[in-house]
Design a protein around this nucleic acid. Structure first.
Lengths: 213, 213
DNA sequence: CCCTCCACTCGATCGCCGTTCGACTAACTA
DNA sequence: TAGTTAGTCGAACGGCGATCGAGTGGAGGG
């Protein structure tokens, strides 16, 4: 039939294109609006087609999250373990904050190649520094960065709504909270807390194993 | 009509009953299976009825999460700030771990009365201890406990599936990870990391403000 | 004793979701 | 040319959160 729609010579759909578009969609509209149908529409295809490249929607999220970890550059310099850790953890945090939706889907195993590579680097750095309680050290750091990103994403931009007023009205019941308000220098607070942790770790390292890093 | 079903003299539906049943449902089946319909069914009512007591499903989750925080007992003793913090944070962690689903919905403002009361206590304790950088101290601790709970819930019980084998097969690429495996003494690791943090905080406290707690 | 009122209940329905099925097609292979 | 296969897609299924408007039962006033 002459009216039959011409097959568009469209670019082949690939897993990479799907993941890239998913990240873009998540960045623009957030995790609640990522839909297989909407994602497919942006890729100019049918939602069914996605399922040939991907098993479930969770796969898309796993891939998108690992793509975020891929943005974290591994430290290169030969300085001390604290500097290397600061650089890795800082980049880790920055990447997650660039894609705030990622903080809300951190409750899944981070087994993608990019995440594993960064975790491996962290372990190796701490091992080289001579930490005997390697897991404790590594977990403390990843716990801290994960937690702080979740916290910041949850609370930032909340100054605009009525959360501040809500607390001010309850100043009698929550005096310390009301006094210190909500506005935050997030970066400085993060750095300071990381400093606490690194100082405490350094003490433990000296106690456990005196080898120089 | 004689066949008209008798109105059951059922117990009045209250917000408390809804929240309690939601927590039970979440405990038994996880966050993915909490449905307004299923929750209503367990309460022997229609799903529509829930919406008279609650505005959205998110309200149910907010209330359930705050109920979990309600399980955390506030420290009473008059010992040092570190002991008080350890007790609060430990109870905080324990409550969240008793309801693992809670770790996956921590990415929302914790503005319920129970959560606020615990946060207030944390601020007050640290302020009394003389911390100048109060927010940094408080955030470091909550970041740490949040992060470690999310991490543990994500990874525990994963030894049973093929995650361990997955890593063992990639031992060349990720030697440090493969060497240290997955099995964890979660409690000990948490305590050790908390120790790092508290030690680092104590150093900063002495530096900033020598007042006794 | 009846009527009104209102806190509370609920069946039906809307639009959207993730996922599946089976039919289709274009390009490559033998 | 015939067959195979990687890739596409319309239609549909069951379930979801939420809404609408029609009820209903018990308390309180006349």
């Amino acid at each position: 039939m002459w009216s039959r729609p011409q097959k568009a010579p469209r670019q082949t759909l690939t897993l990479d294109r799907i993941v890239a578009e998913a990240v873009a969609l998540l960045d623009e509209e957030g995790v609640g609006r990522l839909t297989m149908r909407r994602l497919a529409e942006r890729l100019d295809t049918g939602s069914t087609t996605l399922y040939w490249h991907v098993k479930t929607k969770d796969d898309v999220l796993d891939l998108a999250l690992d793509a975020v970890f891929g943005e974290v550059r591994l430290p290169v310099g030969g300085s001390g373990w604290q500097e290397a850790v600061r650089e890795l953890i800082g980049g880790w945090r920055a990447a997650l904050l660039r894609h705030p939706w990622s903080a809300t889907i951190l409750d899944r195993p981070l087994m993608g190649p990019n995440a594993l590579e960064r975790t491996e680097f962290l372990y190796a750095t701490l091992a080289a520094a001579g930490f005997a309680a390697l897991k404790s050290a590594a977990y403390s750091l990843s716990n801290y960065v994960m937690g702080s990103v979740v916290m910041q994403v949850t609370w930032q931009d909340r100054d605009r709504d009525d959360t501040g007023e809500f607390l001010r009205k309850r100043a009698e019941r929550y005096p310390a909270l009301a006094e210190h308000g909500l506005d935050h220098a997030w970066d400085a607070t993060f750095d300071e807390g990381l400093g606490y942790l690194l100082d405490g770790m350094e003490q433990a390292r000296r106690r456990e194993d005196g080898r120089p890093g």
